[in-house]
Design a protein around this nucleic acid. Structure first.
Length: 392
RNA sequence: UCCCCCGUAGCUCAAUUGGCAGAGCAGCCGGCUGUUAACCGGCAGGUUUUUGGUUCGAGUCCAAACGGGGGAGCCA
């Protein structure tokens, strides 16, 4: 037994302490010897077929969340494993390097709240976690974006390294790149353009990689990371538009809706071909949050970007120029299906005036996975929360 | 099944984060005009889906119900 499943046939229902939010996962043991954990996903039976990372079709109603199948060790085995210890040392060096770089760029580190009356809507499929805050419903932050923008009324350039919690769909447990709890290196610069923060992101990642290459040779070697490949992150990052990415995918026979986000497999395809990290810019309006600013010169396109790693590691970071005009924020909220009334304090600040800005968030665990060459993102966390898997 | 959004005049929708519910079309009255998606002026039109709650005050916030729409391996 893995210590998390119950006796065969027993069903667990886990609920958090909040008054409304309920975390539900049906769990029952399966298999003769192992402690199978079968999870019933919240996906309709007529949903498109799911595929695992190797493209194998998965049965959406019966796929297993078996800890062993996901290669998840016990918490204690994980913490004391030499590989985990090497990963943590690399991650430490990454964080030191990030702070070193941002300090030299005169970017001020802040500590944003982890709970608040409202948070970024986040991914469509992800749920937010409610917290009972003296009888009022507060939420665990899914992003620091609202605080980043408002904080710029008092600072020119800020960053935060903060946890985010998003209850991703159970299917993301097998993507090797989703965690329900993760950290972002969140940077925001007043008055900056998208291109300026893209360059900043490139230099930040470059600095982090430089430090790890010089100071963590032993760890990277222990982890089996190919450093010649990693050092290509020191080259200038390539850039393509979303439209170009779509065309490239279509040419490869990969179906891709030009008006939609690039899907998981398409992103991996682009990533696996790339020699070095690269940006995808100008996503079509409609798939991103209300805070991504629409291009004034090219309506329908957002002035945003994603940063993807080579080698199939996929997305590392995401950023944009922000919308800061009160009226346009309200309009964009409506367009993206948000109720402006819920964003009281943020809109009040926007009405009073928040500066134009651009910024980005780098997924710390994803970047660690890339730098350290880890097969799965959960290996970049000491106490990983793989979606749907109950873990300390 | 879960999450989110919406429900305002007969119809299509406003009301910009709590402060006197508005417009266009349709309807009715009158005017103008060989009209044809007519035009001009006027009139009428509402228990803001329902029930409860918070508030000095609710279309707006909260809870529940009903109805409609969207989303659910992309969005670190």
């Amino acid at each position: 037994m893995d210590g998390c499943g119950g006796p065969a046939g027993r069903r667990h229902r886990h609920r958090d302490a909040g008054p409304r939010h309920v975390v539900r996962a049906a769990v029952r043991a399966g298999g003769a010897v192992g402690s199978g954990r079968r999870v019933t996903p919240t996906v309709p039976a007529d949903a498109p077929p799911l595929h695992d990372e190797l493209g194998r079709p998965m049965d959406s109603t019966t796929f297993s969340m078996n800890r062993a199948e996901l290669d998840l060790p016990s918490p204690v085995d994980h913490v004391r494993s030499p590989r985990t210890r090497a990963m943590v040392r690399v991650q430490n060096r990454m964080l030191d390097a990030a702070r070193e770089f941002l300090r030299d760029e005169s970017v001020t580190e802040i500590r944003p709240p982890i709970i608040g009356p409202v948070t970024d809507p986040g991914g469509r499929g992800a749920k937010q976690v409610d917290v009972d805050y003296y009888g009022r419903r507060y939420r665990l932050m899914t992003s620091a974006i609202l605080y980043k923008q408002v904080t710029l009324t008092g600072f020119d350039a800020i960053y935060a390294i903060a946890p985010n919690v998003r209850l991703e769909p159970l299917e993301t447990a097998v993507t090797h790149r989703h965690l329900a709890e993760f950290h972002q290196i969140d940077v925001e610069v007043a008055g900056a353009s998208r291109d300026e923060v893209m360059l900043l992101a490139q230099r930040l990642v470059g600095h982090i990689v430089t430090r790890c290459l010089s100071d963590c040779q032993g760890e990277l070697s222990e982890l089996g990371r190919e450093t010649a490949e990693l050092s290509r992150a020191l080259e200038p990052f390539d850039r393509m538009t979303h439209a170009e990415a779509v065309a490239a995918l279509m040419d490869s026979g990969h179906p891709q809706d030009p008006g939609a986000e690039i899907d998981w497999q398409g992103e991996e395809l682009l990533s696996s071909r790339a020699p070095r990290p690269f940006f995808v810019v100008d996503y079509p309006k409609g798939s991103r949050g209300f805070y991504d600013r629409e291009s004034p010169s090219e309506p329908g396109l957002l002035r945003n970007f994603d940063l993807l790693a080579p080698g199939g590691y996929g997305e590392l970071a995401s950023g944009s120029e922000r919308e800061y005009d009160y009226g346009r924020i309200v309009t964009r909220m409506r367009e993206t299906g948000e109720n402006p009334a819920k964003y009281g304090w943020y809109l009040e600040a926007a009405r009073a005036g928040i500066p134009a800005s651009a910024g980005f968030g780098i997924g710390l665990e994803r970047l660690t996975r890339y730098v350290a060459g880890l097969p799965a993102v959960w290996q970049a966390s000491l106490y990983p929360k793989v979606p749907g898997v109950f873990a300390p």
